[in-house]
Amino acid sequence: MVFQKPVWKKFVLFVCSLAFWLLFWHLAAVITNIPILLPTPVSVAKTLFSLLPDGSFWLTVFSSLLRVTAGFFLGLFLGAILALAVSFIPLLESFFSVPISCLKTAPVASFIILVNLWLQTEQVTVLISFLMVLPLAYRSLLEALRARDEQMLIMAKHYRLTRLQIFLHLSLPSMRAALKSVCSVGMGFAWKAGVAAEVIVLVPHSLGEQLYDAKVFLETEQLFAWTIVVILVSLLLEKGLALLFRKEGGR
């Protein structure tokens, strides 16, 4: 039997850990005493709260979020389609292996610069998020399809189940389990790469543009505040997806 810590204990531990690192940050800022390099958490918090009532803050957050999630879901969708295609026609795996390997191994910065030559700046974020998620979704879902119960496939053959029945009752349940990890890891990938693309190509009304401006104008407090926004949005997305899958699993 596995004993789990009660929720309140986890929460207390989290708060203590957060308090420790905030204190560490504060002391480091006080000791160095160069706000342009390391502002205190209090001044960063003040900057962050000053951003919240501004409509353009929310516009920035939601437009970045929209572009990244669009790329994420496109990558997930196409990854699933490719994985299914390969599971039906195994020869296709060799055909897809070259571009998928390139996407997995090439530095994301190269893609961002290259894609910027071809597309409008807003579209770069979508495409980069898409390219980050596509190989991950493809590989994970293909492995899940290959891990389908061989004995059930033999049964399906002898009871002459249709391809659609096999897909609905054998392939989809296998893919659903893999989808959880793809979403959790892939959303993080898409978000980080998407914001990096926004910084490099300077997408208007984006988190990346705000980070870049803060750096150029040496507004370190703003830089920290926007970074915290990026982290919070990423955490919210991750928790939201986890909650979605928990609800799905509970059905």
Binding site: Q151, M152, Y159, R160, L161, H169, L170, P173
Partner: peptide
């Protein structure tokens, strides 16, 4: 070799699709 998420009736009906 039954589909665990389906009812017994549905498991038996699947092969009789035609």
């Amino acid at each position: 070799r039954l589909f665990p998420h389906l009812s017994l009736r549905k498991n038996l009906l699947l092969p009789l699709h035609d």
